[in-house]
Amino acid sequence: MTLISLDDELIAARASGTLSAPMRLLVDTHAVLKNDVAEAAFMSDVMSAAFLESLPAESMADNALDIALAAIDAIEAGAGEAAGTQSISRKAAAEAADSTFFELLNLPEPVRQRALEAGAQWRFAAPGVRRIELMREGNATAELLRIEPGHGSPSHTHDGKEFTLVLAGAFADGIGRYEKGDLCAVGEETTHRPIAEQGEICFALAVTDGSLKFTGALGAVQRFLGH
């Protein structure tokens, strides 16, 4: 496992529009937490825009305006649905006096917005760990994790890559320690067991492109069930 800053390849992929939606959420959120990432993303956007400006003009289809307006209408309709969901979630959370809802308000804007659009509904992931699935595209999934101090994930490896960005608190896994703004990446070769440190609740954005593979007795059960 490695403590990293986003590399130029990921930032360039974001600017070119080739990143998956979960990975783009990761980059955008990291940019909110780290000035150097924000500056690199801005410069990449500028360079991409300059490159597009240098390309020869392409003729547009006769119905290009109709297509653009229809796309805008679709986006606005989706925003309206999300706003309605958010409003309902706020009211329901307030009526239930759910303090975890208000914890979301302190998280970076890209993650906070997605969590609200998802209904701000925490689901059980493991003892002391809850999750909200934020988005999924192909094999890539982005989840918001809420990890109580002293709790975490069982020991596991991965079918693909996993990026974990700490939004609040800190966790350690015996290999490294990660606090707010830190990003770690693991691959199939790494076995680890992330555990939140004592004190503050750890919130993290996890983006994976494959499933977790548990070790030990839990891994035997997983294999028996065919997962």
Rank of each mutant, 00 (worst) to 15 (best):
V27H: 04
G219N: 11
E188H: 11
A120D: 06
A96R: 10
A120V: 05
G174C: 06
A82E: 13
D7R: 02
L183P: 01
R131E: 12
D159S: 06
K213S: 07
Q222R: 03
E95G: 00
E143N: 15
V32T: 14
S5H: 10
A50Y: 09
G80A: 12
R123H: 06
L25K: 05
D62C: 09
A31C: 04
E76M: 03
R112A: 04
A172D: 00
A61D: 10
A170Q: 11
T100C: 04
V27C: 02
I4S: 06
G138A: 06
A41D: 13
R90L: 11
Q222H: 01
L107F: 02
A12P: 01
L105C: 04
H227D: 14
K180H: 06
A71W: 02
E197F: 03
G128P: 00
G219Y: 06
F203H: 01
G150T: 02
D98L: 09
P127K: 11
E133K: 05
D182I: 07
V27F: 08
D66M: 08
P22F: 11
G210L: 02
S89P: 09
E148N: 05
G169I: 07
S155D: 10
K91P: 09
E53K: 14
G226A: 00
L212I: 13
N63R: 14
F42M: 07
R130Y: 15
R146K: 01
F224D: 13
G176Y: 02
S153P: 13
F214D: 09
H227L: 12
L144K: 00
A61N: 13
G174D: 01
